[in-house]
Design a protein around this nucleic acid. Structure first.
Lengths: 99, 99
DNA sequence: CGTTCATATGAGCAGGTATTCAAGCGAATT
DNA sequence: AATTCGCTTGAATACCTGCTCATATGAACG
């Protein structure tokens, strides 16, 4: 059964962010783009698991990636990144402000 | 396995909010306290299910309740409600701003 | 006090989500 | 062209979470 439909998409985006690993990734990326290898060193998760999480973030449109030589660089998606870089995520339905 | 531990609690709070029904409840309550019956009329969920969701919100410290006669009134928890009432949730780790 | 109204609780099922393992694939290097 | 590096993908599993049904509690009211 469904609740008020206005919140559907918002709940979905929050669901993506409501994970320790993915939140940690977002915080790292809020400081600037990084390659998977770098993220992998900082966060203590298996590389393949990190990759799965990155896919979830990509599918949600929160991050985007591009290949650089052998490695892949991730960054916060344009529509999500705000002027106050490094602090705020602009998710359509709401704004998430890390102090 | 665990990611960077700084985000643990934040992910947990977001997990509680990352649900259509619970988000809808929070939005209603951000306009002011309401009794379960009122919430139940507005959101289209079974009473017993709503009750379960309210418990999750209570356990997370996002809302508090008090009995009034036969019914129970819920409101946004003090530590979460901000001055800009009706728009912002102050979750320790971050701030959630519904425009 | 027994019933009704308003809400809460607990058990059980069902679908979803994280994690791991094995394998794939593109780019560089030899 | 074969190998290595960096990363992704898919399948299998194990856990978690939402939902429902049945039942309980607590306050009011006859």
């Amino acid at each position: 059964m469904m609740a008020a439909s206005e919140d559907v998409s918002c709940a979905e985006v929050l669901k993506v962010l409501a994970d320790e690993t993915r939140l940690a990734v977002m915080r790292r990326l809020m400081q600037g783009p990084q390659r998977v290898g770098e993220l992998n060193e900082q966060l203590h998760v298996e590389q393949t698991l990190l990759s799965h999480h990155l896919r979830v973030l990509r599918d949600a449109g929160l991050v985007s990636s591009r290949r650089i030589g052998k490695s892949v660089e991730y960054k916060i998606s344009d529509r999500v990144e705000s002027k106050r870089r490094g602090a705020v995520l602009e998710l359509g339905c709401c704004k998430l402000d890390f102090r």
